[in-house]
Design a protein around this nucleic acid. Structure first.
Lengths: 223, 223
DNA sequence: TCGTCATTCAATAATTCTATTGAATGACGA
DNA sequence: TCGTCATTCAATAGAATTATTGAATGACGA
């Protein structure tokens, strides 16, 4: 390593963090780890990737101080190092949202552009829930729901939307949320519900943001 | 390009932004552009880099929506696309600060570790300035000072510290600031002043952050 | 102690990124 | 129209990153 002045050395340290965020798979990993700690194998299964690949990316994230690892017997559980990681992710997303027309095009192009995609804010949701005006569904897989969800939410994983909708009052509006503001599952849930004639909207963002906002989180009973 | 689902496509867009931030030189460029718009040549001169290299990096930043370009005759002036860029930079820095012990080591190792490096907050500074208890110096080059500085600050570029100090009341404390929270010039200014027997501290961060906090900025008269 | 299993390491080929060089572009002023 | 100058482009070589493969490590339980 060449001799560097402190200015260069500092920029290099900052760049290590940004570089670690600069890969789609690693960003997806971060979003998953934001739901709760995961072993390498569990994370690999969630993402449909080979274990060795996930392991290497996890170590890139660890070198950057983004995730931390804790060994538990044969397993190594990875989790986000602290909340600053989520805020860094959010601001990178913020630049992309505001600047890259592509992001908007992707969402509007893939889903039905004619529908009103305006999300429900957290504040609105709390009012609507208090008055019993909406049903809140958490469309993440059951294990993620169990690790923490919005109080009063029902867990309806994406694959069960149709069956669930059939046994529900189709006039009551549904609000769906999942892993984050751009988590595709809630878009798909809303699209599915609307095609079934069910009024539905997305929550503006997902579980980690709800928690980060200091709002109450309900955890499934252990056993 | 292969067929992607929208989830992958979104993560790729976010990764483009993070990847663009993932290079030390580009981060330094962003910090300079945060002081004000610059032509390619001016930026290259500031960074001591070949023009073609800077041009290429600027285009990488532009593709990511981080900077915007505006042609003015023969010159193309680049500037930060919006304030979300600064907040993204700040949160990447936040992860690095909190997680990378290396960053702290660099600063403490390079400068005199025995000195108290605790910075003055913006709030403290306003009180101290109002009561006339400190002299505030802006150690950036004159052209950056001219584009906007903290009201009441005196421009003392790094090379002029010694001469300036000689003609000043050595008992009055000096507060120094420059381009940002880790801008090395203010560390060096404080070290230089202290070695000259002048009490000195750093402001917690620099000009762009002052402006972003909504505080008043003084601009040099045009002429 | 040995086998099992989660994780990491090492080696690799393919791809992407980077800095440099020199030529091309495009706008201004003579 | 031509020369000048700021910027961009194109081509290159070198370096870094990535996914894959299979072997090594390290902890548990029999």
């Amino acid at each position: 390593m060449s001799i560097r002045n402190p200015k260069q050395a500092l920029y290099e340290q900052f760049a290590i963090v940004a570089k670690a965020l600069g890969h789609p798979l690693r960003l997806e990993m971060i979003e998953h780890l934001a739901q709760g700690a995961r072993s390498v194998e569990a994370l690999a299964a969630k993402l449909g990737q080979p274990v060795a690949n996930i392991s290497q990316h996890l170590q890139a994230l660890r070198r950057a101080g983004i995730v931390s690892a804790e060994r538990d017997g044969k397993f190594v559980h990875y989790s986000l190092a602290d909340d600053s990681v989520l805020s860094a992710f959010a601001s990178v997303r913020g630049v992309a949202e505001r600047r890259l027309a592509e992001v908007d095009r992707i969402v509007r192009g893939y889903f039905d552009a004619r529908d009103d995609m305006r999300p429900v804010t957290r504040g609105e949701l709390q009012t609507l829930m208090r008055d019993g005006l909406v049903t809140l569904i958490d469309v993440r897989p059951a294990d993620e729901f169990a690790l923490g969800h919005v109080p009063g939410a029902i867990n309806v994983p994406l694959g069960e939307i149709k069956a669930w909708s059939a046994g529900t009052d189709a006039s009551k509006e549904v609000v769906a949320y999942c892993r984050g503001p751009w988590c595709v599952m809630s878009f798909e849930a809303v699209a599915a519900l609307r095609s079934l004639g069910h009024p539905a909207r997305r929550l503006e963002d997902g579980m980690p943001e709800w928690k980060a906002a200091g709002l109450p989180v309900e955890v499934a009973d252990r056993e």
